[in-house]
Each structure stands twice: as structure tokens, then as C-alpha cells.
Simulated assay, not measured.
Amino acid sequence: MSRNRRHLSQNFLTDPAVAAAVVRLAGVTRDDLIVEAGPGDGILTRAIARKARKVLAYELDPALSRRLRHRFADDPRVHCVHRDFLSTSPPRGDFAVVANIPYSRTSSIVQWCLEARALTGATLVTQLEYARKRSGDYGRHSLLTVSTWPRFEWELAGRVGREKFDPVPRVDSGILRLTRRPLPLVPREALGEYRRFVERGFSGVGGSLAASLRHPYGSRAVGAAFRHVGVDPRAVVGYVTPTQWIGLFLEVARI
């Protein structure tokens, strides 16, 4: 195992059937440009190339990068680049990300995806706990999920057993789907205000969600919004669904 591989907590897929399932869940078609972060041994790269128009595979490990270039030398659809994925600029045209990503870089890679303007979606093999947390599978919803929900849908699309990787990690993995909505659920000009609204709600100021939102929106407006959306003012912040958050915001902001 290389030093980079150990440092990045990277566990490579070993089962071609799992790789094919990830590509199928991603909905890859012959028209798609796919960007892959950390292709490693290329098992997922090969599965993507069977379906996509073009694959840009960014590999940080120099030995693995050389091996990948040799392995896909005869496939014009696959372009292997020795570079840190996080240092790249997103393509300008529509593209999607499909990748089995290092656990240690999950948050940074997800943020890269969220900030990429032309990204249509991302299908990421992540630590199962992360995928469950971001998708609301635990019954709770995180600040990141709620704040980005108007623009992106988060979904736990599948589970991958730990024995399907080398080296074998301590925990199972999840297949996390991040899909950009054709139109945001909040008017574009109000997305910034919505994020601030959510951050205020998650701040814990005042001891409850309703109390956190009373300033600067006012007790009357907040009370009316909670009644209209059907949310208990005493509700724990994490148990308020993204759809309810959006409803509260639209009511309080009078949009």
C-alpha cells in the first residue's frame, strides 16, 4: 500500500459488480462527461467508460496514475491525469462526478461538488455513516443538507459491504447521490437569505428553533409560520425536515 493511499484513507473497490451498480445508480449515459476523483486501480473507471462519453480521472498517487494511463492507453474515452482532484477547476459544460472517494477527504470533495456550477449530480461511495447523516437516513437532518436542499437532493442510494474493498475498512460504505434540481425550491435571489435563515436556526440561540428565529423575523411572523407549516415550535432542530425548513422560510420571508 502506498504512503498516499494510507494517508488518504483510500480503500479501493474490488468487485466489478459493485462498480457497475454504482454507475447504474448514477444514471450515466452516452452523452455524459464524468469526472472521477481518486480512481485508484481503475475498476470504477472501466465501468464508467462503458457507459459515458468521456471520463476525466484524477489520481494523486504517481504510481497509480502511471498504471492507469497504461491500462487505458487504447481507450480514447478515458483521460487519466496525475493531479489532486481538489486542485482542479470544474468543467464549464454539464458534467457529473462518479467516484469512490477517500474517507479523509469526503467533506472537501462534497464541497467541491456543491460549488461546481455546471455539476448535474454526484454519485459518491463514502463512509456509510456520512451518507446516512447527509441523506437524513438517521431521521435527523444536518445543517449542510438543509442549507443546500433548495438546490440539491441528497439520497442514500445503496450500501456496500466492507469486504468489497482492499484494504478492508472497519465499516461499510454508502452510495450517496447528490442531484442538482432543475430549478431551486427557493427563488434564486433569496438563496443567500435562506442559508442565513437556516444557520440562524441551527445556532441554538434562545434554546429552541422558534426562539432562534424570532430575531430578526419577529415573534408574530415566526409563530404564524410554524402554525402554517405544522411544525411544533419546541421541535429539535435536526428533526425538522428540509421541506419544512423551506416552508418556514417562505412564510417568514413572505415569498
Results as ranks from 00 to 15, higher is better:
residue 69 R to H: 07
residue 2 S to D: 11
residue 248 L to P: 02
residue 206 G to M: 13
residue 61 D to H: 12
residue 197 F to V: 05
residue 134 R to S: 06
residue 83 R to W: 05
residue 214 R to C: 11
residue 102 P to T: 01
residue 52 A to P: 04
residue 86 L to M: 13
residue 178 L to H: 02
residue 119 L to G: 04
residue 165 F to A: 00
residue 212 S to G: 12
residue 42 G to L: 01
residue 61 D to K: 12
residue 151 R to G: 03
residue 11 N to I: 01
residue 228 H to A: 15
residue 98 V to G: 04
residue 91 P to M: 03
residue 220 R to V: 11
residue 185 L to W: 08
residue 169 P to S: 04
residue 229 V to Y: 06
residue 74 D to F: 02
residue 36 E to V: 00
residue 127 Q to D: 04
residue 111 Q to G: 05
residue 244 Q to C: 09
residue 195 R to C: 09
residue 56 L to M: 06
residue 156 L to Y: 13
residue 232 D to W: 05
residue 243 T to G: 10
residue 153 E to H: 14
residue 170 R to T: 06
residue 158 G to Q: 04
residue 135 S to W: 11
residue 182 P to Q: 02
residue 200 R to Q: 12
residue 183 L to N: 09
residue 184 P to E: 10
residue 239 Y to E: 14
residue 172 D to V: 08
residue 20 A to F: 01
residue 73 A to T: 04
residue 10 Q to F: 09
residue 250 L to C: 14
residue 49 A to T: 01
residue 134 R to W: 07
residue 20 A to H: 03
residue 213 L to H: 11
residue 167 P to D: 00
residue 44 L to G: 04
residue 36 E to A: 03
residue 24 R to P: 00
residue 74 D to I: 00
residue 124 L to P: 00
residue 195 R to G: 08
residue 193 E to A: 15
residue 55 V to E: 08
residue 72 F to G: 04
residue 85 F to I: 06
residue 99 A to N: 11
residue 87 S to I: 04
residue 69 R to E: 08
residue 26 A to V: 07
residue 80 C to A: 13
residue 7 H to A: 15
residue 230 G to T: 12
residue 238 G to N: 13
residue 15 D to T: 11
residue 212 S to C: 07
residue 33 L to P: 00
residue 236 V to L: 15
residue 227 R to W: 04
residue 80 C to L: 11
residue 104 S to L: 12
residue 55 V to R: 03
residue 34 I to M: 09
residue 170 R to F: 02
residue 56 L to A: 03
residue 224 A to D: 08
residue 157 A to K: 14
residue 123 T to M: 12
residue 37 A to F: 02
residue 139 G to Q: 14
residue 86 L to E: 10
residue 175 I to M: 06
residue 32 D to S: 03
residue 63 A to R: 15
residue 125 V to Q: 07
residue 8 L to V: 05
residue 234 R to V: 02
residue 166 D to L: 13
residue 236 V to D: 09
residue 163 E to P: 05
residue 240 V to C: 00
residue 133 K to I: 07
residue 109 I to P: 08
residue 80 C to N: 04
residue 21 A to V: 05
residue 104 S to Q: 13
residue 237 V to P: 03
residue 222 V to A: 03
residue 96 A to I: 05
residue 55 V to K: 05
residue 159 R to V: 11
residue 165 F to N: 01
residue 204 G to L: 05
residue 63 A to L: 13
residue 240 V to T: 14
residue 80 C to P: 12
residue 102 P to D: 01
residue 149 W to G: 03
residue 75 D to H: 14
residue 178 L to C: 00
residue 10 Q to H: 11
residue 71 R to F: 10
residue 47 A to N: 03
residue 99 A to T: 10
residue 150 P to D: 07
residue 131 A to N: 14
residue 142 S to C: 07
residue 89 S to H: 09
residue 106 T to Q: 12
residue 16 P to Q: 09
residue 30 R to F: 01
residue 95 F to I: 01
